[in-house]
Design a protein around this nucleic acid. Structure first.
Lengths: 219, 219
DNA sequence: CTAATAGTGTCTCTGAGACACTATCTA
DNA sequence: TAGATAGTGTCTCAGAGACACTATTAG
């Protein structure tokens, strides 16, 4: 065998939508390097777990989350990406409904908060690059799959579904064309319930019929 | 810092087309584990290089190749994927024109050969899984980008271009529809040359105008 | 002139996108 | 009844796919 000293981490780009914006979870680091700087949550992979397990474990450390979508993004391995030495990072992207999640600060963090992607603080390491990559993946993926369901609550209105697309893609979509597509392609079903507590005409609530990730032409 | 003993390798799935088949380069391992078993070429990442550099270096070790397309595929990290211990592998996919390449056996290999993907030998480690993943990526990518150019010689006939699609996708394509698409979307230009040495009507030779990878609707 | 591949145009159907009004609820 | 959002149908245009014959070359 060979002598090699490379450390392996995972980093989780955790997206959600709230306040009509795509938001990403960032921690404030409580240790050097980049002490007090914001960063994507991540940690070293244990020898007894694969990277995906590590990503889930890390996810549980920062959030209390159920029903999350997790996907491996890319492996970042620039020689100088970490001042402590040679560290590569396998980046994951997670999508969660805001309501399915509470935040706590993990062991490496002074605090953890969501930030709208339009207004990000300075980030540690190469995390800006990782985040850019994740956002690009999210935008592509939402166009040809039904991942959007992971960002929505179990029951949702079609307006909410549409809003997710408009927010992620950053452009308005015609209501009628959108609904035509949803009718044809998505596995959604109207429930008999309606929105409550709104001060206008309440919308029908829908639910997803299948929760599997499907490759579909959405827009 | 943390104590962690994980080794990091890169593995290259090198595709080409010859004899009307998609072929992949496999080595015969000359050392344990899996001695004499076929495997995707790969090696440990050096501490002084990032993974992409490692993949290129490895590529040069097995082949003499110019003008290759290389793309990171996925990182495989099953705890038990390597009997020697904890080893993760960042897999890359390479596409090369057969004419741009000669094969040599690298230091870890008794021999190196191309195998048609329809007829593969038993593979070491989790390389079957990696190969399956690569093939899937190739099929998707060829549909919405112009990567096909990397598999073709500098000058090629439209029939050859079409053949690449038919072989990779495993289905026939209508000649006229294919050419309409190529006209509209691709950056190809007819040269004034024609095929020589064929015993039938020689086809015009075309070349790619731009060599950048573009996202295009191809089929 | 035969064998073999190159090369070309039209029609149909489906899906994407533009577009505006009525319905229903709350307060 | 005013304010606010939900919800619905049609037309046009572009692109996808089905389809068959003529052109050119070597031998």
């Amino acid at each position: 065998m060979i002598k090699q000293h490379i450390l392996v981490t995972v980093d989780n780009v955790i997206f959600t939508i709230s306040e009509n914006q795509v938001q990403v979870l960032l921690i404030k680091r409580n240790a050097d390097p980049f002490k007090w700087t914001r960063a994507i949550p991540g940690w070293f992979v244990l020898e007894s777990e694969d990277c995906e397990q590590a990503a889930y474990r890390e996810l549980q450390e920062e959030t209390n989350v159920k029903n999350v979508y997790l996907e491996q993004l890319y492996t970042f391995s620039d020689v100088k990406r970490d001042p402590r030495g040679r560290v590569i990072s396998i980046a994951y992207m997670a999508l969660v409904a805001r309501e399915n999640m509470t935040i706590k600060a993990g062991s490496d963090a002074a605090e953890a908060n969501f930030f709208p992607i339009e207004n990000l603080p300075k980030l540690a390491f190469d995390h800006k690059k990782i985040l850019g990559y994740a956002l690009q993946r999210l935008r592509r993926k939402i166009e040809y799959t039904n991942v959007a369901q992971y960002i929505l609550p179990k029951k949702f209105t079609l307006s909410e579904l549409q809003k997710v697309y408009e927010i992620v893609l950053g452009q308005d979509i015609d209501v009628r064309n959108f609904r035509k597509k949803v009718d044809k392609i998505w596995l959604v079903k109207a429930t008999w319930e309606k929105e409550i507590g709104v001060k206008y005409r309440p919308a029908k609530l829908y639910k997803f019929v299948e929760s599997k990730l499907k490759i579909v032409e959405v827009l």
